[in-house]
């Protein structure tokens, strides 16, 4: 279980507070107006933004000072999720061993993961030789082999077409279920939230609200969210 305890982040005039818990196997979307701090929130969870106060706990263990790679988290960024100079297999293999010292079994696992995301046989390619969708799939294959209990997505599919994005989100949801992982994903599209998330965290006015059931929240949005969603 992920807990954010009286978390406070400040940078310049920017402020963000969060104080809530995420239950195991939750699939949670983070929504809110642009610039409110959705990315900042998940980056703090992943360890890229040190909080100014408060604690981040995983199953009671304090993660607040842990290095990003030492957290039980697999993360996908908006872009740059693959190393351009490494092959797909190497990129995925990094999820198993950050020194790329892979056993035969590990290599089989990489093959399997690539297969699972629909990239069978493309392990020797480099990212630049792939389409955007394929690159996303490769990154997901790595998340799969990482097998971390929490997947954090910072809008990695924003650049993809609607159908492709939907495919990817479905794949993410499936993978999360298969590995029994929790999912924390930033999105600016309420449709994405409805598609994969059981719960939604609204980030607005310097405050990240505790997760609330998706359906109810989007059907009856609070004031802060209503302005963002418009009349939709």
């Amino acid at each position: 279980m992920l807990e954010l305890e009286a978390l406070r982040i400040a940078a310049g005039s920017f402020r963000l507070q969060a104080d809530f818990a995420l239950r195991d196997r939750a699939q949670v979307a983070v929504v809110g107006p642009s610039g409110a701090g959705k990315s900042t929130l998940v980056n703090a969870v992943a360890g890229f933004v040190p909080p100014d106060a408060g604690r981040i706990l995983w199953n009671g263990r304090d993660l607040t000072r842990a290095a990003p790679g030492q957290r039980p988290i697999a993360m996908l960024f908006q872009d740059g999720n693959l190393f351009p100079h490494l092959t797909l297999a190497q990129n995925v293999g990094l999820g198993l061993h950050p020194g790329l010292r892979l056993s035969r079994q590990d290599r089989a696992g990489v093959e399997q993961a690539l297969d699972r995301v629909g990239l069978a046989g493309l392990g020797a390619r480099r990212p630049a030789e792939l389409s955007g969708g394929q690159q996303s799939r490769a990154a997901l294959a790595r998340v799969l082999v990482q097998a971390r209990p929490l997947m954090v997505l910072d809008e990695p599919f924003a650049a993809l077409g609607p159908a492709l994005k939907a495919d990817m989100l479905d794949l993410v949801a499936e993978l999360a279920r298969e590995t029994a992982a929790s999912l924390l994903m930033v999105t600016h599209d309420p449709g994405d939230a409805r598609r994969v998330a059981d719960e939604v965290i609204v980030v607005a006015d310097g405050h990240a609200a505790p997760p609330a059931p998706t359906q109810a929240l989007l059907d009856h949005p609070p004031a802060a969210l209503r302005a963002y969603l418009g009349n939709g």
């Binding site: 290095a67 990003p68 790679g69 988290i73 740059g80 999820g95």
Partner: peptide, 20 residues
């Protein structure tokens, strides 16, 4: 460009030097 990704994958120190 790749520091964050490397950190997320716990690629640090010598490993980071060698692989990235």
């Amino acid at each position: 460009g790749q520091g964050r990704l490397a950190l997320a994958l716990d690629l640090r120190g010598w490993r980071f030097l060698r692989l990235v």
